[in-house]
Design a binder for these strands. Structure first.
Lengths: 231, 231
DNA sequence: ACAAAAGTGTTAGCCGTACACCCATGT
DNA sequence: ACATGGGTGTACGGCTAACACTTTTGT
């Protein structure tokens, strides 16, 4: 440890996870009642300390696993927040992460244990410290990603209809995409393949289920809709 | 300091700056001969430790100021690199930053003092540790930014011709933009205003100088060219 | 028969790209 | 006069957005 011999300043390093989920045709955010002082009992993003010999990605995965019980989450860095005084409890450098979660899949018991609650994205309560700024930036990043990648694999069920995907995009961008145009654009990407099975509850006619093609993991695409870019 | 009472792991935190410049119609990168072990004498990005009670942005600005003598640099976060073992000298978490510099403006004396050298972006030597990955990601980020913002204010002289701006974009995207189309697109953004003065060296006819409008600082625009997005 | 969502078709307009072409001027 | 980059014009193709229209089927 070459650098240890000279005295260098070390910092407390944390991760904060912005956990998005999708349920009842609503984009939701998972928030927590803070367990420790300061600001105990107020709503916040879920965070955790980064251990020695651990990457921030691993720390985020560890935190997400402990909360949701899920192993297959893929947290993505948003950015670092390190203004002195951003956390009244100490000089903490935190790395914000985005995570997408299937709400129905995770353990609700864990959630209850941690005093957590899903909030519709349009009805988020006041948050501690700079967490509202973090959320704003994380949400912007999610929309940017949704513009250039077809997201939904981690938010929708394994098989889903075009309409379900459209409703998800409606939620993310807070607008209504044209059903016909959305369908054509989506299928033109060739990232999905149709199953021989129909969804029969949402419409009389029934709508074919689709799945993501396995091989097209996170493929970078042209903007889904030009108008979606603006925000 | 609430969190200090319980023992928490602290980390060495550094910043690494990816410094882009533009000179002789070439996009360049400022690299340094590393002054300390390990890997002393090899090429690297310039880095620095983050002090207590200092944001990573402030640390990046401080490092850039100490190297270039410039006060008005606006480092932008790229992302965190924190894999254990990424730096053989110790367990260092580093935040990568992009910075754009007017090459002719900064103090060359400082540069010499630090064993620094400008490299054309296409002729970068091998770098230490994970700095090549950092550069790759930083460069991708620069191109993304150049797609949605008109950059150049910090790379070109105060007044410049449309052709000079086009050559900068040619360099950034490693392609040749069509002169006529680039001109029309650029002017349609209405981010520049024309001066009553002409550049007289590069062509017989002479080309009007343009300046950035002061009020349009970092305005978010539609993609400059659709084809520029792909990379 | 009607409603309601699935799915297809059509059209107008915008915009990117390619490329032709004139302009101004120093040699 | 001619070469050179500055600057303008045009035309084609592809895509978006708006919306009409057909299909299917449960009630």
């Amino acid at each position: 440890m070459t650098y240890e011999t000279v005295h260098k300043v070390k910092r407390l390093v944390a991760v904060d996870c912005v956990i998005f989920g999708y349920e009842h045709e609503q984009l939701k955010l998972l928030l927590f009642k803070r367990q420790i002082e300061p600001a105990k009992g107020q709503w916040s993003l879920i965070g955790g300390w980064v251990n020695e010999d651990e990457s921030v990605e691993d720390a985020a995965r560890r935190v997400l696993q402990s909360i949701t019980g899920l192993e297959d989450v893929f947290p993505e860095q948003v950015r670092v927040f390190s203004e002195p005084g951003r956390d009244p409890g100490g000089n903490v450098l935190t790395v914000a992460f985005n995570a997408l979660i299937k709400i129905e899949k995770h353990s609700n018991q864990m959630i209850r244990e941690f005093g957590a609650q899903w909030f519709p994205i349009s009805q988020v309560p006041p948050l501690i410290f700079d967490h509202e700024e973090m959320l704003q930036i994380a949400y912007d990043r999610l929309r940017l990603k949704a513009t250039y990648n077809l997201i939904g694999r981690q938010l929708l069920p394994e098989k889903f209809t075009i309409t379900q995907m459209r409703r998800l995009y409606d939620q993310i961008f807070q607008k209504s995409f044209d059903p016909g145009n959305f369908r054509k654009k989506l299928l033109s990407l060739k990232l999905l393949h149709r199953l021989d099975e129909k969804e029969r509850y949402e419409s009389k006619k029934g709508a074919f289920y689709y799945k993501f093609k396995e091989e097209e993991e996170d493929k970078h695409v042209e903007p889904i809709f030009r108008s979606a870019i603006r925000f």
